[in-house]
């Protein structure tokens, strides 16, 4: 399997704090890769750098064979790299359906077309059915529960037919039933060809779903391997427990 995403010696400093310090790793195509590490190890900062929300101080990000370091988030999204946020970010003033339509990543020419056209509706309705959001399609996103918002955010980033999806704590703040639902959707989409990179604190979720697992500590990769090996790795235990 070739690498879909590779991070090469990426660094980012905030004031005197080295949030990411010369981090390098790769995400192979077709995998569900986990990115774990203690709080403050630089996971979300790295997500922000990969998706163009932050500029790295040094290093390179390569996506699908192209150097995308410093690219605009919108451009990256349109080229197939999308993400969700730790706190589900949907547009509360838009309906559930419109939240999907707005995320389709269109060109300039379509800006002056109908707000929700027939094509948009057809495309979105498949996702709405798949995520069981069809009954609430016309409600404002503001009226959804938090778990539903997480699902909606996930469904919305699939509108652009991405090849790589970065999920930032997909199970945080949602109930066990919703966690199972989320896991099922990730598996289905992975089988359909989407590669995932997931930041997650729920270790049972990671162990069930992800392979390989990359562990960060103090802005560096300290381990990469199968989930079973993570639990017995001395460096990882040291990072988590400070033993």
């Amino acid at each position: 399997m070739s690498d879909l995403l590779s991070i090469d010696s990426v660094s980012k400093t905030f004031g005197g704090v080295h949030a990411v310090a010369g981090c390098s790793f790769a995400v192979a195509e077709g995998t569900i890769t986990a990115l774990i590490g203690p709080n403050g190890s630089g996971k979300t900062t790295l997500f922000n750098i990969i998706t163009g929300y932050l500029k790295a101080d040094a290093g390179h990000v390569t996506f699908a064979g192209r150097d995308v370091t410093g690219d605009d988030p919108g451009r990256l999204y349109r080229s197939g790299l999308s993400r969700t946020f730790q706190q589900a970010r949907v547009f509360p003033q838009l309906s559930v359906l419109e939240n999907l339509v707005v995320a389709a990543g269109r060109g300039w020419s379509q800006l002056f077309t109908k707000r929700v056209g027939g094509d948009d509706r057809r495309r979105a309705s498949e996702l709405l059915e798949e995520f069981r959001l069809a009954p609430v399609a016309d409600l404002l996103a503001a009226d959804l529960s938090y778990g539903q918002r997480k699902l909606l955010e996930f469904a919305a980033v699939l509108m652009s037919s991405p090849t790589l999806v970065l999920l930032d704590e997909p199970t945080a703040g949602v109930n066990p039933v919703m966690i199972e639902t989320m896991e099922r959707h990730i598996r289905q989409r992975n089988q359909a060809g989407i590669t995932f990179l997931i930041v997650e604190h729920d270790m049972t979720f990671v162990m069930r779903l992800c392979d390989p697992v990359i562990v960060l500590d103090a802005g560096r990769q300290i381990f990469s391997g199968q989930p079973a090996q993570v639990q017995s790795n001395a460096l990882v235990l040291d990072a988590y427990l400070g033993a």
């Binding site: 998706t51 163009g52 929300y53 605009d72 988030p73 919108g74 999204y77 349109r78 999308s82 993400r83 946020f85 970010r89 547009f91 509360p92 003033q93 838009l94 419109e98 339509v101 707005v102 995320a103 389709a104 990543g105 269109r106 379509q110 800006l111 002056f112 077309t113 109908k114 707000r115 929700v116 919305a156 980033v157 652009s160």
Partner: peptide
Amino acid sequence: RSKVGLSLVAVRADEDKARGIG
């Protein structure tokens, strides 16, 4: 009635997120 309006609402609600979804 067009995607201009849809995009403007997205910008008002969360511009960074809107930028990130193209």
